[in-house]
Simulated scan of single mutants.
Amino acid sequence: MSSFTVDIVTPDGVIYHHQAKFLVASTQAGSLGVLPNHSPLISPLNIDAVRIDLTEEDGGSSDWVAVNGGIIEIRDNVVSVLANSAETEHNIDVSRAEEAKERAEAKIQKAKETKDHDIDLGRAEIALVRAVNRLNVANKRGRN
């Protein structure tokens, strides 16, 4: 079976590097599935989980990474994800993600109730999506 390399990079450096047999990512054009020898492509990513199916030599399980947008590039059997932030399922601090979710929900509720223009509703909604994404990925632990 052939495979490809997956690199997920943030401003802090490489957070994920592995061989894979399949990858699924959510792009702004829709869901993208990647197999070995995929055609070259560059696309913006949504805030969502990236699923990486490992090769049989690596146990054949799936890894999950919470990606907060960015860009995916596919070229020469290398999938590169460049993101402002991303966390593997094992590195997510669940209590911190839950606190972020609660803070975002409270800001959204306050903005809607008081019509407070000082609260940036758009930023609060994005913060909520990011927190929920992180929690969803953290919940994948051990389910491979």
Rank of each mutant, 00 (worst) to 15 (best):
H117I: 14
A83M: 04
G142R: 11
V137Q: 10
T5G: 00
L41F: 14
K110N: 05
S31H: 03
A106V: 07
I92Q: 05
L45P: 01
G60S: 06
A138L: 11
L128F: 09
A111C: 08
S26C: 01
L54G: 02
A124S: 14
Y16K: 09
S3L: 09
S80K: 13
D93Y: 10
H17V: 00
I119D: 11
W64L: 04
N136T: 12
V67D: 03
E73Y: 03
A138R: 08
V14I: 15
A49V: 05
V137E: 08
N139D: 14
L54Q: 10
E102A: 15
Q28P: 00
E99W: 07
I72A: 10
D93I: 08
A86Q: 08
V129L: 13
V50T: 11
D58I: 02
I108P: 02
G59F: 04
V132D: 02
S61V: 09
S95T: 15
K21S: 14
E99A: 15
T114F: 13
K21M: 12
S2G: 09
Y16M: 10
V94L: 13
W64Q: 05
I72Q: 05
E99R: 14
E73P: 02
I52E: 04
R143E: 14
A66M: 08
G33F: 07
V24C: 01
A124F: 09
L54Y: 06
I15K: 06
L41N: 02
K140V: 01
I108E: 09
A104I: 09
E102I: 12
Q19G: 07
K140Y: 04
H17E: 10
D118A: 12
W64D: 04
S26I: 00
T55G: 11
N133L: 03
P36M: 07
